[in-house]
Design a protein around this nucleic acid. Structure first.
Lengths: 154, 154
DNA sequence: ATCCATGCCGAAAATTTTTCTACAAAGTGT
DNA sequence: ACACTTTGTAGAAAAATTTTCGGCATGGAT
């Protein structure tokens, strides 16, 4: 947490919940005037604490109500195969997240699709087309219990 | 995708990548003038397609470089135990996401901490304190291969 | 004690958001 | 075919916000 103070932290907490808060509103919540708040935001952007601003959409309304986690293990662990897998995964738009994991399984993928049928097609015609996949194990999300968009800031 | 057209979809694609784009910039990219773009955004917000706007922070700079996925199974599956677990998980600030899953394991948790030590403390003093947990299986993220912030919009 | 750096304030300028009126195209009912 | 309504867009004006800038305090260093 190099070089940021409690005011900066509070600013980050507020902005990661609502990026549309105006400098004016932020200033009043922080007990400052416009200028210092404005400068702090620019500084936090410059330092990389704030990476970007995004609109959060409703995946249900977008027609992708199904979320699954898919565990993938490679048959062989040559660097070339690993690189190839990572490269191919980037291209699959259904894959929202992909992590290289420690432990039994090599990769964990988070996938969004519109229906079970779409998931079937995704696995059969896209994912399993990637070379050298050994194990492929999918589990479905029944319910989202918690999904924080921001991080905990100590 | 009830009641939104291709222009709306393109608008959503742009905004979920960069919510700071001005109406002017959006208008020029969409080949429209300010007013229709402005009204479309308000409409998409009203319909719930756009849920909120957030700043995306850098978890490494915030001192939480470690991500783990933790699979949890309950010993007994009475509704009261399930409810209690879901309730307690909400309170744990290290837990960024929690899903009730189909399959062998009951819950999947995504957790952010600052160090392996922090993770140890989290499991020992917080997570495992919740009643009725049977299996608890943690796997660490070695590398983030892909992390789309937005959804794929067909 | 003076100088310099840092952070904040307040006001002005630039830009954007928001509102409002009007026009054109598409669909509906007579 | 005609008038009517609805929908979506354009353009301009008003309101609000962002951005810039000069100045004032506080604190540390020389």
């Amino acid at each position: 947490m190099d070089g940021i103070d409690d005011i900066d932290k509070q600013l980050l907490r507020l902005l990661q919940q609502d990026a549309k808060l105006t400098t004016k509103e932020l200033a009043s919540q922080l007990g400052l005037t416009l200028s210092p708040v404005y400068e702090r935001i620019k500084r936090l952007e410059g330092l990389g604490f704030i990476k970007q601003y995004v609109a959060v959409l409703d995946k249900g309304l977008l027609g992708q109500p199904i979320t699954t986690f898919c565990q993938v293990s490679m048959r062989y662990h040559d660097k070339a195969f690993i690189d190839k897998f990572e490269e191919e995964v980037q291209k699959l738009e259904e894959v929202q997240e992909c992590y290289h994991m420690a432990g039994q399984v090599d990769f964990l993928l988070k996938i969004h699709v519109g229906s079970l049928n779409d998931y079937h097609d995704f696995v059969k015609y896209k994912l399993s087309q990637i070379e050298n996949i050994g194990v492929l194990n999918s589990t479905f999300v029944l319910k989202e219990i918690k999904h924080n968009l921001g991080y905990y800031i100590p």
